[in-house]
């Protein structure tokens, strides 16, 4: 009986145990890891990932995926930088236009997935390359810098000791959680992800749910891109490279199902922190970028494999 309880405990809090284990391992491996400055740094870096993850969670709950997140971040990076530097646009306006554009890209993804029934993997693979291409064309491959001073506040400012990006992330996480749990359309995401046909017959506008999920994904990716731009203070064509990978990995680690229908913001937070601590810890331990890629890839495989095995177990139990 007792072993069963331990087992259940481990299963339920597995993700937090992994997080704890990582913290212990890295604090032993590197004395700098637990310093306040490093912790603040980790959380601040996590904020871009966290903001984009809030968008992606809607898409994954309805059973989709958005591979274009990374290049949308890049695209927003470049166009907002371009508007401010080359056109002298007000930073707030430029940011809003950038986020508006990314929301439209998301809407486009959702529209194609819902109406033309192309698998989301393919649709967003295409938009990924399209907007990465546009970013290169607009920037001419060069970094863009020289923004108005005020713009830096968003990514570099503090309220007390808390960095502004972290505050933004927390607001986004709360907003995401509110949408998923408190609004009627939030419940529709779960319904569509677990059974689209039954949802449609129950009066859920399945297409609209798709538009909304992908638009939200674009919106939060855009916001994440603006924060990143403000933090780095220069528009880079490589800003969002591989970013979709971190976002998807974080969510899957946090228990968001790759087949849709399940996932929550509270668990996703653990996944986001794990991904960021991995990156940070690897750097502190002097592990090369390339080896980091190898390890991160393995982490994603294990996380998805775990999710799938769990599902198979459940369905065989049901049959038996």
């Amino acid at each position: 009986m007792k072993t069963l309880n331990v087992k259940q405990f481990v299963k339920k809090y597995a993700i937090y145990l992994v997080l704890l284990a990582l913290i212990i391992i890295f604090s032993i491996a590197s004395p700098q890891f637990l310093r306040v400055s490093n912790i603040v740094n980790v959380v601040r870096q996590a904020s871009m990932l966290g903001i984009a993850s809030v968008g992606m969670i809607f898409v994954m709950i309805i059973g989709g995926i958005d591979l274009s997140v990374g290049s949308v971040v890049t695209f927003v990076n470049i166009i907002v930088a371009y508007f401010m530097v080359n056109m002298g646009m007000n930073p707030v306006l430029a940011s809003l236009v950038g986020i508006g554009a990314s929301t439209l890209i998301g809407f486009f993804n959702g529209w194609v997935v819902a109406n033309i029934k192309i698998p989301p993997l393919i649709v967003t693979l295409a938009t990924q390359i399209i907007f990465e291409g546009w970013a290169y064309i607009i920037a001419g491959g060069m970094p863009i810098f020289g923004f108005p001073k005020s713009f830096a506040v968003l990514g570099q400012g503090y309220v007390g000791i808390i960095p502004i990006p972290v505050i933004l992330m927390v607001i986004c996480l709360i907003a995401g959680s509110f949408i998923l749990n408190k609004t009627f359309f939030g419940r529709h995401f779960y319904a569509v992800g677990s059974n689209a046909e039954a949802s449609e017959l129950s009066g859920v506008r399945v297409k609209r749910v798709h538009y909304l999920a992908y638009s939200l994904c674009g919106f939060f990716a855009g916001l994440s891109g603006v924060v990143m731009l403000s933090r780095t203070n220069s528009g880079q064509v490589t800003a969002g490279q591989g970013f979709e990978f971190d976002v998807i990995s974080a969510l899957v680690l946090g228990g968001v199902s790759v087949t849709g229908g399940a996932g929550s913001i509270s668990c996703a937070v653990a996944g986001i922190l794990i991904m960021q601590i991995l990156s940070n810890g690897f750097v502190l331990c002097g592990i090369s970028t390339y080896l980091q890629m190898v390890i991160k890839g393995c982490v994603l495989l294990v996380a998805v494999g775990f999710d799938m095995l769990q599902r198979m177990k459940e369905s065989t139990v049901k049959k038996a």
């Binding site: 939030g186 529709h188 779960y190 677990s194 059974n195 039954a198 229908g261």
Partner: peptide, 26 residues
Amino acid sequence: GLCLPMNIRDNISLSSARRLSRFCVL
């Protein structure tokens, strides 16, 4: 008919969720 992985309450309220909410909030 059903979203099998969802609980009974969420299934029962699926069609009526819209009218059981004010300003989108359930």
